[in-house]
Design a protein around this nucleic acid. Structure first.
Lengths: 239, 239
DNA sequence: TGATACACCTGATGA
DNA sequence: ATCATCAGGTGTATC
């Protein structure tokens, strides 16, 4: 089914499979902003990792003292599932997304200064979302795509009209990640090796409850907690 | 206790804790020269590593086929203990000191061309010593400090008078390295991670005996084995 | 072989 | 001055 709002949805980013707004959208009110981070040159460079500021990592992605890494899955603006390895580096005492991150950077064509956003579903906080916007773009886009020059570029977040809010559906036709497991889940590592054990975050199996103190102010220069009210951002999600 | 030889010991390098020649010297005759190496620009640059010429590394610091790194501890001219990570880099087929090396370079203000010296205790070859001298300085200093211009600079090796040879003692009042373990010891790495297992070299626990063929001639352009007889160099040592 | 992954390391920086 | 943080690196293993 083709998009009904060609001005919003026409894109050559996924020309072979454009997202359908009538399929499984996640309303803006359903998504809980967690935090965002302006990307450093290292975050988009050859180090193939994203450093997650410690206060956000420990608040939203607690590892529970686990030294091994986890697999975390996020839904992007197309409903595509992205799995990243999430772990703590003792040597630098920092939390990082490693495996899979470079693919995300490449596909979204992220540059230093662009901003990645992390959100979760309000009622099912095991569903995690990842988005992005170009540097200098407003947090809540007033234009259809508040990014760089060139109208054919997509953003990770969109300003959508309220009437799109009635849409519900599936979205099982986005079979991207070969190693994807479950959106918003984490897979626990056995300890230093490859992740192999499931651990749902914000859901079950882990000693962290679905607490979402989104109203906390930002305390970091290089990242910020999202504390604004309901936004107009929209992710499309599957499952 | 203040130094008695102000011309030799007056220094502002450790003005808060000057070494005392009456405390725990290691006689020249107690130290066995192993080898020395003129420092390359890379050795003192941002690579934070010292390449140890292979013939010296395999002769004096054998890794025993261990792929993981070791922690090696050396006593400097002040009795201060310096711990370095020692490992073999497959990519460059070279033996290197990595962690801790840059701190040594910085503290000693070593430049390219300066020479580092490695020695060990004759009777307790698990005690290792590290020293240095400025480029162009004679191996056996005839002056009190045969280094660069500026009389307040210390050298890693000193020419001392024979009568200082009677001194013995402790030196436990030099608590520098927080992560130091034992002078002249090596700590085996678990494999790519942090070094965590003790492995005394030249002492026990390792399949290498205390063999010291110091008389071998130099075969490297960038380093030389020390084959001269008793020198007048002096290290001060603790423990 | 080249790209990626991964754990480790360090210096700069600001609180 | 000390300390925590993190941006920017490393070598090595894996694919």
């Amino acid at each position: 089914m083709e998009p009904t709002q060609s001005s919003l949805w026409s894109s050559n980013f996924y020309p072979e499979k454009p997202p359908n707004p009538n399929e499984n959208p996640v309303f803006d009110g359903e998504r809980e902003p967690m935090f965002e981070k302006p990307l450093t040159p290292s975050d988009v460079g050859k180090l193939n990792r994203l450093v997650i500021p410690k206060q956000h990592a420990e608040k939203y992605f607690p590892l529970g003292g686990d030294s091994g890494g986890l697999l975390m899955s996020f839904e992007d603006e197309w409903g595509k599932c992205w799995s990243f390895r999430y772990s703590y580096w003792n040597s630098s005492q920092s939390y990082v997304l490693t495996k899979g991150w470079s693919r995300y950077v490449k596909e979204k064509k992220l540059d230093a200064g662009d901003i990645v956003l992390f959100q979760r579903h309000r009622r099912d906080c095991s569903r995690l979302f990842i988005g992005w916007r170009r540097r200098g773009a407003p947090e809540v886009a007033e234009t259809e795509c508040g990014g760089k020059a060139g109208g054919d570029e997509r953003c990770g977040l969109y300003h959508v009209h309220p009437y799109l809010g009635h849409i519900q559906g599936l979205g099982a036709n986005v079979p991207y990640q070969p190693d994807r497991l479950h959106a918003g889940s984490m897979i626990q590592n056995g300890g230093g090796g490859k992740p192999n054990r499931l651990l749902r975050l914000f859901g079950v199996d882990v000693d962290v409850e679905c607490h979402l103190d989104v109203s906390q102010p930002s305390t970091s220069e290089s990242s910020s907690a999202l504390s604004q009210g309901p936004t107009t951002h929209l992710f499309y999600s599957q499952s």
